[in-house]
């Protein structure tokens, strides 16, 4: 067991962990932050994406010990300080960018980084950036649309009817 100390959603935390404790396990079991989900074991589905030191990572493919000293943000830390939905979260609701909600935390975390890196991404750029996030419900249509809308683009013309 080793002690790890990090900041999670702005709060300092310090816990004893085993060497093989994954970040997903640390967040879900030790901190009870169950919004970070586990959908696969090969680092592909992206339901577990979090931000570590400002970068998106798959929490299922990183050990808690490797986050020593890091600033970690999870889905629980994404809403506005007053508790209202952030622009991206609100766009997902407005454009029906989620159904069962299981992939949603990872989608939001990935989308947030995309918009930081590329404030006005094209449809193609969004689809490409979502390569590591699998959604089984939405067919991605409304996820892509929500991200475009969150970036301030006009989405009213997308696949009308």
């Amino acid at each position: 067991m080793t002690k790890v100390t990090m900041t999670v959603n702005g709060k300092a935390v310090s816990k004893e962990v085993s060497g093989n404790t994954l970040m997903t396990e640390f967040l879900r079991d030790a901190l009870h932050l169950t919004g970070t989900h586990v959908g696969c074991d090969t680092s592909q589905c992206g339901a577990c994406v979090i931000h570590v030191d400002g970068k998106s990572v798959k929490a299922c493919t990183m050990f808690a010990a490797e986050a020593e000293g890091a600033e970690v943000v999870t889905i629980e830390g994404m809403a506005n300080p007053d508790g209202s939905l952030s622009v991206i979260q609100q766009a997902f609701q407005d454009h029906h960018g989620l159904q069962c909600g299981f992939c949603t935390p990872g989608m939001v975390m990935t989308a947030a980084k995309l918009l930081e890196e590329n404030p006005s991404p094209s449809e193609h750029e969004i689809r490409d950036y979502l390569e590591g996030n699998i959604c089984r419900c939405t067919g991605y249509h409304n996820i892509v649309k929500a991200i475009m809308a969150a970036s301030g683009q006009d989405v009213s013309g997308i696949a009308a009817e």
């Binding site: 169950t34 919004g35 970070t36 989900h37 586990v38 809403a79 609701q93 909600g101």
Partner: peptide, 19 residues
Amino acid sequence: QKRREDVRFLTGAGQYTDD
């Protein structure tokens, strides 16, 4: 209508069985 269940899913507050 926008979905009311979305708020919990978008904030990590959903409660799935493994939670």
